[in-house]
Design a protein around this nucleic acid. Structure first.
Lengths: 221, 221
DNA sequence: ATGATTATAAAAATCGATTATCGTGCAATT
DNA sequence: AATTGCACGATAATCGATTTTTATAATCAT
């Protein structure tokens, strides 16, 4: 018996879907979130929607104001700077720890993750914009793999959330920055395998700040 | 017309109460959270309880396992180390930024916050254990005030949560470490006012690691 | 007696409906 | 004409009940 599409969107499945919808802009930044609309859109009851929204509020993807409902967190240039600095802080620290502690299995993980990402980057470069989300998924997984030997689950978890907040800003930019980013990913992998923490951190900072500038230059509300 | 005590525990009021109950151990670490019990305990419906739990899950105070319910996040020595390192990273960074950017109003805030904290520390030293929670509230507010000029609301928010996770470990320790901590708070205030970032960060690290060691030495499950 | 299978009870997850709150437009008063 | 108060519609927040899932106990077969 197959699971119907309706049932697939319950519980944590709904949460994943809504978080994605926010990160990838299908629920527009700053937009009002009507409970009835969401109920229709996702085909679940108000209670289930609210449960999900509570989680997203706690993570900062959604804002709630007293008894006046919910809306997607707005995007601002300052917010981008803020989240980017936080990502540099968390990922930079975790990266250092990971390079110190990573074993051969970790090396295998980052090589594998980079390979998957690289394939997506090639498709994007070839103009196949359909893989946009898979591409960014690969991006996420590569960066997570890099820090996966840092030894702190708290840090990994926080980084995952902050990365998605950063990603939301990147997804708003229509022009492509893939070539530069791809080169930085290669350099990052190389530095990681060579356990060159200083270089890795420098590239990471450049990588993130490059994304910030690209987003600011092509800003549109 | 007065607001009844029942109604006071709705919405975000319930959230504050439950988070406090976890941090201060009234909902014991690792304990199972029965929805019916919680409904009776807080006098609200299941839906409201679940909404609140979702938020606490997102923040990491509560764990949820598939369709098998909720339990308070367990405490482990590794978890303490983990959360302490994260606090040093976040608070240390924010502190540096705050010392760079803080104006006179910020100075007034940290002096005021330290004064309130100091009063509580005196009461604790005099044996008035009834102020335990107010004391730790003052602790929280002092550290938040120190970093309040860092310019990043994301960072402040994350620190607030991480601080509470750290605090939960401290509240489990019955023996008193007040004198040492109070001295460190004084040094921290002094270094902050003198804009001596290196000293401030060194004291902060000692302050946090001191708490970790104290908790580990007096560990009890 | 032991392992597998089915009934039963307990708990979680979801839903539809009710209640409380908020925002808006209309009317009344100055 | 402007401002205040009131009523109505819309939306959010909460609840009690239903459905689904999981855990436990009992039965049956080997």
């Amino acid at each position: 018996m197959t699971i119907s599409q309706q049932d697939a969107l319950k519980g944590s499945g709904l949460y994943d879907t809504m978080r994605r919808d926010i990160v990838f802009g299908r629920l527009p930044a700053g937009g009002k979130l009507l409970l009835n609309d969401l109920r229709n859109r996702y085909g679940v009851s108000i209670s289930t929607i609210r449960e999900c929204l509570s989680r997203l509020v706690a993570e900062g993807f959604v804002k709630s104001e007293g008894h006046r409902g919910f809306h997607v967190s707005p995007v601002t240039p300052e917010g981008l700077q803020d989240v980017a600095e936080l990502r540099i802080l968390l990922e930079g620290h975790a990266l250092k720890r990971s390079l110190e502690a990573g074993d051969t299995q970790w090396e295998a993980r980052i090589v594998a993750a980079h390979h998957k990402l690289h394939r997506m980057e090639q498709k994007m470069a070839a103009g196949d914009y359909a893989v946009r989300e898979t591409w960014k998924q690969g991006d996420w997984e590569f960066h997570q793999s890099l820090i996966s030997a840092c030894g702190s689950s708290e840090l990994m978890f926080l980084h995952g959330t902050v990365f998605d907040k950063y990603l939301r800003y990147q997804m708003r930019v229509l022009t492509f920055r893939g070539e530069t980013a791809a080169a930085e990913h290669r350099q990052l992998l190389k530095a990681a395998l060579e356990r060159d923490a200083d270089t890795a951190e420098r590239i990471l900072r450049r990588h993130i700040e490059g994304g910030v500038n690209h987003a600011l230059e092509n800003w549109q509300d």
